[in-house]
């Protein structure tokens, strides 16, 4: 499919090295509005490094990243304002209530009290968590904590949602609920999603894929294209085929 409008996320020729070790090698891709792009890669592929660059936790001289048309280096604050992130590690304050955690995020994004209250209600209701807003995060199970983190990432209505292996450690029903919810977001709200995972069962037929292995992109395209290119019958076999290497 040819995308005529500007991408929400554009990553161009990004390379990153830790000392001698090359973590990302000339990585380029883009994510458009309403698209769920799955960044598929085994552990150590470079997914987290890539996320650290897109969130500007780290920086690199090679290549450029634009979010909603804003260059991350030149307009970092504005660009980060268009971004919502769910990190792999839990990042909620365990001893504070759900609502207090969300107010903290709303303050960091400059939302006024009334607007923050409305948005918190809206996002928590969408995930059936509003009734639990006064509970401490510590009292919630892993799946519910993740829901709160997704609600938090969406509070300021970002154009791009980054999810770094958000379902790791969750039980099957929680995983399924999160995967479906995020896919629904792309359809209903035209949000662009970049979802890093190594679990192939989280991929929908309609998703766009990037297979990252050892810092390089091994494949980019749709699920049917992946199966065609690798001459395999399932995403799991294709993934295995693309990432198998003599260790």
């Amino acid at each position: 499919m040819i995308q005529s409008i500007a991408p929400v996320l554009s990553v161009q020729n990004i390379s990153l090295a830790y000392g001698e070790k090359l973590a990302l090698d000339n990585v380029s891709f883009s994510v458009h509005s309403g698209e769920c792009r799955i960044l598929l890669g085994p552990n150590g592929a470079g997914k987290s490094s890539l996320f650290s660059l897109i969130t500007r936790l780290y920086d690199t001289r090679q290549g450029s990243i634009d979010i909603a048309g804003l260059n991350l280096k030149r307009h970092s604050s504005k660009a980060l304002g268009r971004l919502g992130v769910v990190f792999q590690q839990p990042t909620l304050d365990m001893d504070l209530s759900v609502e207090r955690n969300l107010f903290y995020h709303a303050d960091l994004h400059g939302l006024g009290r009334k607007q923050a209250k409305d948005r918190i209600q809206e996002e928590l209701e969408r995930q059936a968590m509003f009734e639990r807003r006064h509970e401490k995060v510590r009292q919630l199970n892993g799946g519910h904590r993740r829901r709160v983190e997704i609600a938090r990432a969406l509070l300021h209505k970002p154009d791009l949602l980054l999810l770094d292996e958000p379902t790791v450690g969750l039980d099957m029903p929680s995983r399924k609920a999160i995967v479906e919810y995020v896919h629904q977001l792309t359809a209903d709200h035209k949000i662009a999603v970049l979802w890093a995972t190594h679990l192939v069962d989280e991929i929908f037929e309609t998703d766009q894929l990037i297979v990252l292995h050892k810092g390089t992109i091994r494949f980019q395209g749709s699920v049917p294209q992946l199966l065609d290119t690798t001459a395999t019958s399932s995403v799991a076999s294709a993934f295995q085929h693309l990432t198998k290497e003599v260790r």
Partner: peptide
């Protein structure tokens, strides 16, 4: 180490 710091550092402020 635990990740909370990231939510602060990726805020849209200098």
């Amino acid at each position: 180490e635990m990740g909370n710091m990231r939510t602060l550092l990726i805020s849209p402020l200098p």
